[in-house]
Design a protein around this nucleic acid. Structure first.
Lengths: 353, 353
DNA sequence: GTGAAAGCGCTAACAA
DNA sequence: TTGTTAGCGCTTTCAC
């Protein structure tokens, strides 16, 4: 009983409407679907019949014949992360305006979940896919989509060796600027902290799993290099999830670090809490800056100086690009880089002597 | 060219696989779909052929014949709102575990957007719908789904006159407790602030557009009544979006209010900022409490005492209920009420004399 | 302007 | 165990 849905009723179809309006199925379909031509009289009869019977189109059947589903898939790390929630909203608004809906999948930044998500979306015949790739260096999970010619647009990070469009923020410039601020305040011992997974200690040139974090690290290192600080790589602390931000921050303090660049606002939050618990005042003892203008950063005492990203726009622009590809735009793939914006607050001070 | 997607290639189908494996379409479908029986030899041949050709099932075609799409729709006010993001994650996890995907739609709390969202979901033949109804008092936008027998579960708020399942938090008890805390500290002039739209001044017994806010107001009023405070309704301030939280808080301060109950963390945030700008210290001059354990509430100075909601669980439980209904559970509709949890911090002090 | 018929990719009887 | 045959609800030729 396909048409009934766990339920006695049967869905009313174009055939039903056609019969009621005493026209052929094709004609009814034409007026109901808003394509082809029909005399006014017929149109009225069909519409009346449809109304009367409570006709609801079956978008799936339409997709079966047209090949277009009017839905796009979006794969995020975790919708609960405000970054992804905002980007998703940006994408949703653009999509909706163009008549598309979003099928949402969380990857938790795991390759297998991502691969599975792609399979599901491909099976559901989405018209295109938006994805924040779990891995920049090994995007093999996304290959299935690309090979099948399904339009795919990356956001937040790029993927090596995948010829697709991408929309990212200018993380390198942002990191550089943020770090410069610290350097200008007189700091010489400043650390960069990220949760990104990485084997062993970071060394200049290492490719990281996420291009956005990678670019931030690059910008950070560059700033230190320009300032003439030897061996900047030693100030980069990764694997913060595994090792614990708390432990890392404590270690940093013990080492005499005087400033911290947090790779995202969650890390900043953890660092902030740890410093507070340790009774180490910000910014007089340790300065703290971060990426993302999370709401708490302006409410905390002190308020945190941050590099804001145009998150909404990242999602929106990615959706725009994807929709253009779906529409058949065959121009060369783009790599859109959006600027970040510095918001100076109260979390930087000169290092203590 | 239905099967091609903006692209030369044609999708490979069961027929293709069947031909390659030299078996009938039905047999190929059986092994590919994992139903029915097949000899090991045949199974191997079919699987090899499928692998070889790069077969990908078409979930839509399957839905057409089975009537089940394995996707559920979720309509939230705004995915960017952390509350909805968390509830969505809770729902997504449960859904995924049961083999369902989520089609996400934002209503912005508008009836027309909600109605449109329902139409889209019905057209896409989702197996069920999860929705935080934009209006408790006029859920006519949701009737279409209910009438068609599509399982529907509400979360966060209930809807009058709609016989469906719902999962909400115990807002009334939560509000009462929060207000009692203020009363116990000695406050007599405490206000409740919400962005909910309401015609004219609030009067006891008025039905509000959102049952969750309505329940909070009820709990608040009850607490004041029990404390013997005359005419509690005058302390309820609604329409904060239209009037501006800022203006409302200023007015409250002028009126000599000594404590504020914020109906959600966004209002609390705005109130916090306003009080800070006004140079009015929390909690010595004005005490402030709120709903939802937003991250900033523990990072601000002072940290805010809040009534935390089991947001994740609200979404998860709603999804569980929905999936049970989809599976055919015909027992009477439930109204699940989850407890809230008080987190006492530093934003309450006795009123100044 | 309207209708008849085929087909999208799959599952579901029913036979063999 | 395997194959044949109908559909699911829609769009799309192609006639009329």
């Amino acid at each position: 009983m396909p048409a009934d849905h766990l339920n006695g009723r049967r869905e009313v179809t174009v055939s039903d409407v056609a019969a009621a309006a005493k026209v052929s199925k094709a004609t009814a379909a034409r007026v109901l679907g808003g394509y082809g031509a029909a005399s006014e009289a017929v149109r009225d009869r069909v519409q009346a019949a449809a109304e009367e019977l409570g006709y609801r189109p079956n978008a799936l059947a339409k997709t079966m014949t047209t090949g277009r589903s009017n839905s796009i898939g979006i794969i995020v790390g975790d919708i609960e992360n405000p970054f992804f929630a905002q980007a998703t909203r940006g994408a949703a608004d653009v999509a909706k305006a163009a008549g598309y809906d979003l099928i949402l999948l969380n990857s938790d930044e795991h390759a297998d979940a991502e691969e599975n998500a792609v399979s599901v979306l491909l099976a559901k015949r989405v018209d295109g896919i938006l994805v924040a790739p779990a891995s920049t260096t090994d995007p093999s999970t996304l290959r299935a989509a690309v090979e099948r010619g399904r339009p795919l647009v990356l956001f937040d990070r790029i993927a090596d060796g995948l010829d697709v469009d991408a929309v990212v923020a200018d993380n390198r410039a942002g990191a550089r600027r943020l770090t410069d601020l610290l350097l200008e305040a007189g700091h010489r011992r400043v650390a960069f902290v990220s949760t990104i997974v990485h084997e062993g200690d970071y060394r200049v040139g290492d490719r990281l799993g996420s291009s956005s974090v990678g670019d931030r690290v690059t910008g950070f290192v560059e700033a230190l290099e320009v300032a003439g600080i030897p061996d900047p790589a030693r100030f980069v602390r990764l694997n913060a999830r595994r090792d614990g931000v708390d432990a890392i921050v404590r270690g940093l303090v013990d080492e005499g670090i005087t400033a911290i660049v947090a790779s995202d606002s969650l890390i900043a939050q953890a660092a902030f809490r740890t410093l507070r618990e340790l009774g180490i005042p910000i910014p007089t003892a340790v300065s703290l800056v971060a990426f993302d203008d999370a709401d708490w950063t302006s409410l905390s005492a002190p308020a945190i100086t941050v590099m804001a990203q145009p998150i909404h726009e990242i999602g929106a622009e990615a959706a725009r690009l994807l929709i253009r590809r779906i529409a058949g735009d065959g121009s060369p793939h783009e790599n859109v880089v959006l600027p970040q914006r510095l918001i100076e607050r109260e979390s930087i001070a000169p290092p203590p002597d």
